[in-house]
């Protein structure tokens, strides 16, 4: 059974790229347009195995999303991967403190993303 990954990003193309890459690597991918959408979709679902999220998003940003996810007992240990850029070091540290599992710095290629996802999904 393939693992389910949620990609959270307000950019359609990034979502598509992540969905496409991870889909090609055999994962099932669902999309969310921002943190709020992600939390809604996560709900009490226990079928989602991992989140891949952007930091800057309207409505609810990446840090708040991490906090929101970790606040739920059900999703306390779910891996959360951040998509960051070099200039977002402070935000990254905040997200890490909030419970983000790891990060990948943009731009990245498909292989790097798949490697990191595999590492976190062990």
């Amino acid at each position: 059974m393939s693992k389910v990954i949620m990609t959270v990003d307000d950019s359609t193309s990034i979502r598509q790229m992540v969905a496409f890459t991870l889909g090609g690597a055999g994962y099932q991918v669902i999309e969310a347009v921002d943190g709020k959408d992600a939390l809604d979709k996560l709900g009490d679902s226990s079928t989602i195995d991992m989140l891949v999220t952007d930091l800057n998003m309207p409505n609810l940003d990446g840090i708040e999303l991490v906090k929101g996810v970790r606040a739920q007992q059900r999703h306390k240990f779910i891996p959360i991967l951040l998509l960051t850029t070099e200039s977002q070091e402070t935000k990254k540290q905040q997200a890490k403190a909030a419970g983000a599992s790891g990060w990948i710095v943009k731009p990245f290629n498909a292989n790097q993303l798949i490697d990191v996802v595999r590492k976190l999904l062990k």
Partner: peptide
């Protein structure tokens, strides 16, 4: 201390 709360398992790293 919070490694588990970050969705990471130290044993996974050792296995790696």
């Amino acid at each position: 201390e919070n490694i588990l709360l970050r969705g990471l398992d130290p044993m996974n790293l050792i296995q790696e």
